[in-house]
């Protein structure tokens, strides 16, 4: 555990808390992509099956359980409790366009051809693109609530910090996981446009809106 990894995890945790707080306080999930949240639940479920097979630390187990539980709770809020506020018309990205190719790739490019390993690889690839329905939704409506942009910024920061973590681990621990690094870089690159808008607009007190 190094400082970048810890900050990354905390940023990820913060993103989830911001999202839950936004929905709970405003009693609404307007502007949030249910597709992205379903994909995240799938990511956590397939990645953390190792909860049953290996123990790393109390910290690791606690975080995994929280990520899984919060992702399903988010889906419950969006598709049940606050269903009336869910903007499904703008959430039109097709999940199968991501899940199917990513599933195929996980079968072809993995560290070991074992069920748990393929599922882990699937989750890594899927996480890298799971934000696309959310970004698609923002671009379709042309705007995002400020709280939603804070959520996206925290989520993007998490992956950027993980890249610093991998650089650190490469030099100081001799650790290098090509699959995680490539997917993590792809994931971070997807946020670049958003980061630019966040820094130039939201941090200056303006709402995040895209040019028409």
């Amino acid at each position: 555990m190094n400082v970048f990894r810890l900050l990354g995890d905390m940023s990820h945790l913060l993103a989830i808390l911001i999202l839950l707080l936004k929905m709970w306080k405003t009693r609404s999930c307007a502007g949030i992509s249910g597709k992205t949240q379903i994909l995240f639940a799938l990511v956590f479920t397939t990645r953390y099956l190792d909860l049953f097979s290996s123990f790393i630390s109390i910290y690791n187990t606690t975080m995994k359980l929280f990520f899984i539980a919060s992702s399903y709770f988010t889906i419950f809020l969006m598709y049940s409790k606050f269903k009336a506020t869910y903007d499904s018309n703008h959430d039109s990205f097709r999940m199968e366009f991501l899940v199917v190719p990513v599933g195929g790739l996980a079968f072809l490019v993995n560290h070991e051809f074992l069920p748990l390993e393929i599922l882990w690889t699937f989750s890594i690839y899927l996480e890298s693109v799971a934000i696309l329905p959310q970004l698609f939704m923002v671009s379709k409506t042309g705007e995002a609530e400020t709280i939603t942009s804070h959520y996206l910024f925290a989520l993007g920061s998490y992956r950027l910090l993980y890249i610093f973590n991998w650089v650190y681990r490469y030099y100081f621990d001799g650790f290098f996981d090509l699959i995680a690094v490539v997917a993590g870089c792809v994931q971070t690159i997807l946020y670049c446009d958003f980061f630019y808008l966040y820094i130039t607009k939201v941090l200056k007190g303006k709402k995040l809106s895209l040019p028409a």
């Binding site: 990894r5 995890d9 990820h12 990645r47 190792d50 790393i56 690791n60 975080m63 995994k64 990520f67 560290h111 882990w120 993980y162 973590n165 650790f175 290098f176 996981d177 699959i179 995680a180």
Partner: peptide, 10 residues
Amino acid sequence: KADSHSHDEL
């Protein structure tokens, strides 16, 4: 080799 991709990250 196993160590190079031990999944200790979240």
